[in-house]
């Protein structure tokens, strides 16, 4: 389980307009590239000082590849990061509030207590 790395993916993609579009268009390719090239990068540090130990589980990788925000929630990814990025990718195809209401509807089976998001 690597909640931190899920959050790191969502965070680093959401803040970069090119990556937002790339992840929307090619989720599988973007996730594979990111895990190889970016997952171990300590933000604000030079390449020579990358980490050496970070990787997704297969379940996490699959959730990201398939834009599966419900599973991301169930895995404990930070809900604010997921929502913000998914609004950026998909809301413009919907009526006002239509996307965020459908997003909630797809999670309607989830009961309290919600999955822990502590990293």
């Amino acid at each position: 389980m690597s909640r931190y790395l899920l959050d790191k993916f969502l965070y680093t993609v959401d803040r970069d307009p090119e990556l937002v579009e790339r992840y929307r268009e090619d989720p599988a390719g973007t996730v594979a590239w990111w895990e190889t090239e970016r997952a171990n990068k300590i933000l604000n540090c030079v390449d020579a000082e990358d980490s050496t130990w970070l990787g997704f589980t297969e379940e996490e990788r699959r959730a990201l590849r398939t834009h599966d925000h419900v599973t991301l929630f169930e895995l404990g990814a930070h809900p604010f990061l997921t929502l913000t990025l998914f609004i950026a990718m998909f809301e413009h195809d919907h009526e006002p509030l239509g996307y965020v209401k459908a997003y909630a509807q797809r999670m309607s089976h989830i009961q309290l207590p919600y999955p822990d998001i502590t990293t």
Partner: peptide, 9 residues
């Protein structure tokens, strides 16, 4: 609620 089932009610 943000990013969960009770958002935007």
């Amino acid at each position: 609620e943000l990013g969960g089932p009770r958002q935007f009610g």
